[in-house]
Structure formats: structure tokens, C-alpha cells
Design a protein around this nucleic acid. Sequence first.
DNA 1: CATGAATGAGACTTCATTCAT
DNA 2: AATGAATGAAGTCTCATTCAT
Lengths: 232, 232, 232, 232
Amino acid sequence: MNLPAKSPSASETRHRILDAAEVLFVEHGFEATSMRMITGAARANLAAVNYHFGSKDALIQEVFRRRLTELNRQRLAALDRLEADAGGAALKPSRIVEAYFGTALQLAADTEHGGHTFMRLLGRTYTEPNAFIRKFLAEEYAGVLERFRAALYRALPDVPREEILWRFHFMMGAMSYAIAGTDGLQLFAGRFDDADPVRLMPRLMSFLLGGLRAPLAGFEQACDDQPGRAAA
Amino acid sequence: MNLPAKSPSASETRHRILDAAEVLFVEHGFEATSMRMITGAARANLAAVNYHFGSKDALIQEVFRRRLTELNRQRLAALDRLEADAGGAALKPSRIVEAYFGTALQLAADTEHGGHTFMRLLGRTYTEPNAFIRKFLAEEYAGVLERFRAALYRALPDVPREEILWRFHFMMGAMSYAIAGTDGLQLFAGRFDDADPVRLMPRLMSFLLGGLRAPLAGFEQACDDQPGRAAA
Amino acid sequence: MNLPAKSPSASETRHRILDAAEVLFVEHGFEATSMRMITGAARANLAAVNYHFGSKDALIQEVFRRRLTELNRQRLAALDRLEADAGGAALKPSRIVEAYFGTALQLAADTEHGGHTFMRLLGRTYTEPNAFIRKFLAEEYAGVLERFRAALYRALPDVPREEILWRFHFMMGAMSYAIAGTDGLQLFAGRFDDADPVRLMPRLMSFLLGGLRAPLAGFEQACDDQPGRAAA
Amino acid sequence: MNLPAKSPSASETRHRILDAAEVLFVEHGFEATSMRMITGAARANLAAVNYHFGSKDALIQEVFRRRLTELNRQRLAALDRLEADAGGAALKPSRIVEAYFGTALQLAADTEHGGHTFMRLLGRTYTEPNAFIRKFLAEEYAGVLERFRAALYRALPDVPREEILWRFHFMMGAMSYAIAGTDGLQLFAGRFDDADPVRLMPRLMSFLLGGLRAPLAGFEQACDDQPGRAAA
DNA sequence: CATGAATGAGACTTCATTCAT
DNA sequence: AATGAATGAAGTCTCATTCAT
């Protein structure tokens, strides 16, 4: 099984280009990655990108589309399952957050099929200056975000909706940076002995939910300011 | 002090270039911002950048240096004050976080003198792929981070050090994205009626501390999963 | 005859390519018309041109050949008829000019079957810099021009032969430009309310014959310098 | 005198590029002339065209502008002189034609400073398919043509204005082709022993005026159909 | 008879940088 | 202190063409 696809319609070159581009985009960024670098790494002709995708921009778009379509499909499926299980009752916010960020973290933990690579790329791209990329990313996300936004509104009826959006925003930032920034800047170079993406999940999820549950205004709650110890 | 800058070494052209570059770097990124764009916006000769700074990379470095030096000086000063006030006792973690992130948020709230612009740039740069930029940013931060890391270790003696680093990491991500991503991707386009950077501060701070205080492992704490209401 | 073209050698794709190429060549020129444009407009595969014609140059050649062969056949037939009618006597120069240019103008008046399109293309091609095109056009014309040159020599025995050639040259220029330039440059934009190619014929023919009959050297003939009014 | 201009502001490279481009455009056409060919011939760097002109199109435009401005200035000056001499009386049509076409032919006779080269280029360009070139040529000509059109209308008050425009059109065609086509297609290859552009002038002028004076409609005027012999 | 995939060559343009002035 | 001219390298993209199917 898993024989190399010989069918020309599956265009094996096309896939090699997408894979090579994904890796190089993470490593050097979109602008600094030249078509020559991509086709070189993909063992393809320089003109192959334009032949298969039309332009560099279209290639970038396809790199995202093939992964995001699947990721967001899984996110929606997870949310569907939650709602089906709840049977009309309001969902627990933590479950919603898990459905959204857990799915992404699972993809980020996949180091075998490029999932980790892609999530690093995606994390960085949220602050991408290129207008074209921003635009189609927003379009690609529109549907999913709408669903999760509505779910959170229902789950947190007493929280001002604007605050919900902000916290969702903060959570996305924490996750993006956690994934994209770790191998990048390495501000605490050498100190992350354990950058295993698998173990990132519980750490990040705990942080995110802590942030989500934090008191709404001000931060001078009477507390000892120490992380709590989870009940076993 | 504060003499009228008559000195030719203070070269007004130099400042115009730095200001123009800062704005353009935020808008288009480093690679996509050409020397022509910079010198054009700064009403300077194309060769002026190389004349004043030596190279594009050196210009980038200087754009960061002039702001980061001051920002990190303020951070250290805030930490010094805290420690002086505590008189040898352990600091409250929330105060440390305030000293680090509050200072940055104050700069981000300054829309008059380019502070906001710079913080957006800085936020994006944490995930910058360019090796040269990563390297000097790490150097620029080394001292401050060392101090704050040590302070947090002392303030949270019972928390595994690795976990402290991770949470610091998550907090930086949430802040960076909150500042850099807001005007960028706009995933929830049009829904942020209130993107005022001044009001960002309490919101973000509350979220960060919530994350910092979250239970360490797992997230099935017995709680109602709702954000708390701060005591007045 | 007129059997339904079932023969595969008549390949309908071939004709669609020729028709599309003719139109595009007029619109954009040879160099600026790519094989993609041609096969796209002809709803054919990109490789179809090379398959059917061998190369782009061969296609260009065929676009001309299929029309020129017929046009020049008609020209020769008209001249044959004139000579047959004259029964050995010298021909009137105006009849010869009519045989040559009138035939072309008739083709140019055919807007139904691409004749107009082709004549615009032909008109422009007389000044085509491409060596290959010049060469085969010259060959294609060699026979016809030889016959008409000889006829004019006979019809105008007192006029230096060099002058005859020059005037023939001038006439071709006037006609080419009249056909090719009208829809193109439009120097007098909007002023040609009547660009009907059918009505072009008498106008141009009158001009050509006026030029042909003009005094040979100098131009200070005693005349009122006004166009004559034709006798009804 | 005529020392090589050392001043950098006169940018000698710029002129070399313009001269080289003019020659190559005549020889190969705009599309088939690459920037490499131009800068190669001008002994300049490949980037020099973009530095001095901004783009290939802008270079094309400048090639025309520098010559056409002068040519049309001379045409207007000639017309001004005619009108001044006439002192309010109507001009002879032949004088107007001389002012317009004679000036052009004089430039075409200048083989020393590229005038001949340029006129061949100009002649071909009247049927140029490239929309951009057509547009700016039309603009460049607008003023001159307006003046000459008005002058011809005044000089030929009894001739329908539309007919005047057509004949002007025909004359431009005859001239363009006479200049541009001679060295090009060479339909009568080898037969023009005397292609001397200086001697072209009286020949063409005679033809043009013959066409201008031709009877207006139909061409069956009672005449012997022979070119007249000019009165000495 | 026809086509999808692929390619080598070359197109125009832009880049950061240098240098003489 | 500053600049206009110039350049080598490299960018993306399009070209006509080929070939296995």
C-alpha cells in the first residue's frame, strides 16, 4: 500500500512544491523565499510553480488552503459533536476552547506530516503585513469564527460580548506565539529543554482557560497570586 | 540639557529616515519595504540610508535600538523600584508582570510619538524569520529577561521553573498578538468598536494574570468556567 | 462537392486556431500574441498549435497563405480577363490599378468572413520587421507583382520604369494605411463618421489614380490646386 | 567645438540608450527588441534603462517624444510662415501639404543624425497594435493635426470636410509606406537602384498632390490616364 | 487525434549598494 | 554632509516548445 502515485493527474510535482514551499516559508518568510529556492528544494523546474499555481501568491494561498480547509473542518466537527452531546443545553466554555485550540494543537503536534511546520507558519501569518494574505486568511476563517463566536456568546451570556472577543483574541495570540515563537526568537535560548509539542497542549490549555476565567475588570482580586494546583 | 539639536551629527535627515522606516516596516514588513520607499517617504536621497546607517540591516537594527533601549530601561527601573519597595521580601508576581507588560502597553498606548507604531512592529518581529534580526533582538533583550526571569523564580518558588518560562512565553504571545494583530488580520472585522490602545491595558492585564494563576496541569478544576467578577 | 467536412484532415480545431490567430494578430501583433492567447481563444489545447502547424512561425505563414493564395489568384484572374478583353492592345492603367487594388478592397469590405480583419493584418505586415515574415510575404507576392509590373510597363511605355515602381509603391502605402490605420491610430479620432469599408473603395481609387496621373517631376503645374469634380 | 559633454547632468548614457533603442526598434520592432539588446548596444548596464526611463514603455515614449516634438514644431513653424506670408488670404493646398509632408521628408533625408532611422520607425508605428503607443502618439499629434486640418478646410472650402480628412489619411499612408516600407518588405527587391531619400521628396510630393487634386467621386474622368509631364 | 505536464530560455523589473563628485 | 549616476545580482513571470500518454 501507499505506492507512489503514478497517475499524472495527481501531479506529484505539485505536491512536492507545496511541501517544499511550506517548509521554506516557515524558515525564511514569504518574501525571502524565492521561487528558485522552492523549485530547487522540490526538484522541479523554475517555471513549475507558475505552471501549477499561476503565481507565487497563488502558491502561498494553496499552501494555506489545503491545510486550513481540513483544520477548520475538524474544528466545526468538534463543535458539532459538543452541541449534539449537550442536546440543546449551553456548552461549557472550556469545551469550546478545547474544540478550537485543541484541534490546532493536535495538528501542531503532528511532526510526521508537516502539521507542526504548518502551524508555525500559520501562527506567524496572523500578523502578516501582506494585504493579499491577510484578506484570504480572513475569508478562510470567516465561517469557523462565526460559529465559535456564537457558541461562546451562548456559553457566557453574562459576559459582555466585546470582552469575549478580546479574550478569544488574546488566546489566539498566546497559542500562535507558543507555536511560532518557540523555535524562532528563542528569547530564553537553551532553556526550553522540553519543547515537545505534545506536552505543549496541557500547558497552553491550562493557561488559556485561566485567562478566560480571569476576573473581568481590574486585577486586584484578593488572591495569593500563585498558580493553583490542579485537583488530580 | 535639552539643548536645541543644532549639532550636525544629530542630522535631522537621519531621524526622518528612522521615522519613515518604522512606519513602513509595520505596514509592509522588512523585506517588502525597499530603500526607495523609505528614502522617498523621508524626502531623502536614495543613498542616504547607506550614508547614515551603512546598510539596510543596520537601519533596521537602529529602528529597534532607539526604542528598545528606552523601553527596557523603563522595565528595569520599574523592577528596581519594586525590589527597593519590598526591601528584600519576595515580590508579588502580578507586580512583576505589571512591570514588564505594563511598561510595554504604556508605550503601545502612545499614538503621538510613534510608540504604538513601534509596538506593533515589535509584536510582529517576535516571530520574524530573518536570522540577523532574531539574533540582535535576542541580544537586546538578554539583560532584561534575565532580571525578570530571576524575579519570577524568586516570587514563585514552588512552581517548576520550566512552567514559569512557558507562562511568560504565553503572556508575551498574548500581548504581541493583541497589539500587532488587531489592526492586521482583523479576523473579527468590524467587531472591535473599541480598539483604543489605552483601554487595552486593563483587559490584557487581567487576562495575563488569569493565565499566570491558572492551575498547573490539566484544566478540569471544579469551577463554573465563568470569568470572575472583580471585587470593586 | 460541399460535402460535410467529416474528414479528420480538415480538422475543425485547425480552422478555429487560424481564425483566432488572425483576429489576435491584428489586435496585438505577432510578438504580443502568445500561443496561450491563441489556443485559449480557439478553445484548443496549448499544444494544438505545434501539433497542427509545427511552430508559431508556421502558423503565421498559414494564416497568410490561406487568404493570400486566393486574393492573388483573383488578382491574376482579373488581369487575365482584362488582357483577354483587350485582345493584344495596351491596357488602360486605371484598369490595371483596379484589378490589383480593387480586388484587395473588395476583400477588405467583407466583414462577414474575416476578410476585413485579414486586410488590416496584411496592411500592417508590409512594414513588419520580422525577417522570416518579410521573406515569405515577398515570395508569396513575387508572381503577382511580376505580372502587374509588366502590365504597367506596357501600359505606360513613356514613363520611366523606376517611376512606375515608385508610384505603385506609393499606392500600396496609401491603401495599406487606409485599411490598417483607420481603426488603429485614429489620429482624427471621432471624425470618421463613415468608416464603412464599402465606401472606402471609390474614395481610395480616385486618390490612387490621381496620384498615378500626377505630373512626373516638380509639382508647380499651373492649376488651381483643387480636387476636380468628376463628370457624372 | 563639439567636445564630448562631460557633465553628468547631461547623462551621456541616457542619449546612448535612446540612440541604440531607435535603431533597434526599427530593425526588430518594439516587442522583439529586448532591454538586453538595447543596453548591450548602448554599452550600458541592463538596469540603466529602468534607472533613466523607468520602464521599457517609457523609453519607447521618450524615443518618439524627443524627435516628434522637434518635427511638429517645425511643421507648425512652416504653417505659421505660410499664413504670415498669405496675410489673411487662403493658402494654396499644395503649400499646406508641403509644410506637413515636406518637413517630414526632410527629416527622413537626414541620414547623419538618425532622422532617416526615426522616420522609418515612425512610419511603421502608425499601424502599431500596442494600445499604449497608439495613445500617446495620438496625443503627441493632436495639436499639429488640428492646425493643419483647419488650414486645409479653409484652403478647400468647396470640398466636403470628410473627403479632406480621407485624403490626408491617404497621403500619410503613402508617405509612411514610402519611408518605412522601402527597406523593409522590398517587394520589388533589387529594383530600387535609387532609394536615395533625398530624391524621394519630389517623387512623393508629386504623387501626393496628384491624389489631392483627383476628381472627387468615381474615377471615369475623360483623360488619357497617363502621368502628365510637368511644365518646366 | 489530441493533451496535460513539464522545461530551458529569456523577458522586464527591482533590489541594495557603491562611487565620484 | 550629501547626492545623482550607475551597477551586478536576483526577483517573478511568460515564452514557445517537447514528450509521454
